[in-house]
Design a protein around this nucleic acid. Structure first.
Lengths: 261, 261
DNA sequence: GCCTTTTTTTTGTGATCACAATATCCTTTT
DNA sequence: AAAAGGATATTGTGATCACAAAAAAAAGGC
């Protein structure tokens, strides 16, 4: 009796904890010119990019449609897109989860970031204008402010905005979508690692990058971007007890049911 | 009356010509364990990768569903996926076309290939075993055979298979999906450029790559892959009258209006 | 009590429908 | 005869439904 009740309570607690990230999702206002499909996609994408959905969390079409107040159709299409971007993993038993992380995959993803982003930065350099530098400085200040205030979501998103803005200065850019794909795969894990990082300040090499941009020094810019990414990777890997957040640790958190009336 | 009939005939002819690539599509047999969605996706993807659908060609959901003999639902989801892979372009006026090419984009895409594939090859090198080398040699022979027989589709697909197999030797590979995304964007244009290439033989650096692999020489392997890609790019750019296949040339096949009320 | 089997529920999939927006065709007007 | 306007057809979008597979829950046996 007692153990049964305890188990029920535990499961209920788990369910609550796991449901939270979806019910608390920030919903961007759906403007008229945005289709429901796009809105659902962007909502989920932003939630993943800011690390609000934990790895191993299971998503269901009906559950999401219910929470977001739309029919299943837009959710299906949004999940298709996220799935082919690697943001979510479609398992063979037709269940969709946020992918687990392994040390090897983490390594590979960071290596890819370095390769892609140094290339994108170098390609953009020739097109960066004075006003772009000012915008980058503004974004850099925003990052610092967010992390000083302990707002991890805003910090992560602003940091991505800084990098994205830099790379998109190249007018014929084709690598940003690939870079964002890598971010999408990293974000959920990086987020839970950052939470365990006690320090609420953050070091980045954005000033170094800006200096390289002002001097039009491609090599220095590449180095700054690479160092920026390596620093981030190092601070993630320095987290105490990181190993418990890899693959096996989260498998208890995999929970199929979302809710039903 | 006469002009009306003439116009109708002309349009019918145009329509036929434009529909052809779809009706002649090779349809892989749909095995039981493959969902209709996946089957449609792979069918379209393969058609794009082997360059059977020309840039500027407009795709419609109902049209594809009709040709493939399925309902519109699987087609919609497949188009969503292809769209987010950059294989097709979803225009603001809700029409879907195979993207046009511009010289700048072509350049960027080839640069990305070099960056991504040299990285992937180097990462894979340590994991390549004797049997993998044999498989690569087999694929290389298949490429030669296909091009000798003038089978461009098989040649393109086998060439991709060679590269893919090499990169996938790395067990924790995450870059192959990105590489394939770039291929998807290049393939339709490369195909029409290759058709204009009078020579029906092809030079590649695969033997050079295999030699580097046997010597476990990472630098040489990178150089071989880079040369292989650069050679391909050069032979594309050497095509006479290539400029007519960029953007504007195909605009008759594209719907004129871009803006929306 | 614990494990296996059966029943119930949930979920993904594919089809169909209604609707609004857009494009195409046809008529009318100048 | 050419341009403008309206009528018709086509298209994308989102909702709903039926069905089969799979998971969760319940019942039964050891």
């Amino acid at each position: 009796m007692m153990s049964s009740l305890g188990s029920t309570l535990f499961k209920e607690c788990m369910r609550q904890q796991l449901q939270n990230p979806l019910t608390n999702l920030p919903r961007p206002v759906r403007s008229a010119e945005l289709s429901v499909n796009q809105w659902v996609y962007q909502t989920l994408r932003q939630a993943l990019l800011s690390g609000q959905i934990r790895p191993g969390f299971a998503l269901t079409i009906r559950g999401l449609a219910d929470v977001l107040g739309v029919s299943s159709m837009p959710v299906r299409e949004a999940l298709q897109r996220l799935g082919c971007e690697g943001a979510i993993e479609v398992k063979d038993n037709r269940r969709v989860i946020v992918p687990q992380m392994t040390p090897a995959r983490l390594n590979e993803l960071f290596s890819l970031r370095i390769v892609l982003e140094t290339h994108a930065a170098e390609g953009a350099l020739a097109y960066i204008r004075e006003e772009d530098v000012r915008e980058l400085e503004r974004l850099d200040a925003e990052i610092d402010r967010a992390y000083k205030q302990g707002d991890m979501e805003l910090g992560a998103l602003s940091n991505q905005a800084f990098h994205r803005y830099l790379y998109q200065c190249h007018p014929f850019q084709v690598s940003v979508p690939l870079i964002e794909r890598v971010w999408l795969q990293l974000a959920p894990f990086v987020r839970i690692a950052m939470e365990k990082l006690q320090r609420n300040y953050r070091i980045d090499r954005h000033q170094e990058a800006l200096k390289a941009i002002r001097h039009c020094n491609a090599y220095a810019l590449r180095r700054a971007i690479e160092s920026d990414i390596r620093d981030g990777m190092a601070s993630i890997q320095a987290v105490d007890g990181l190993e418990q957040y890899f693959s096996e640790a989260t498998q208890v958190a995999v929970k199929p049911r979302l809710v039903r009336g």
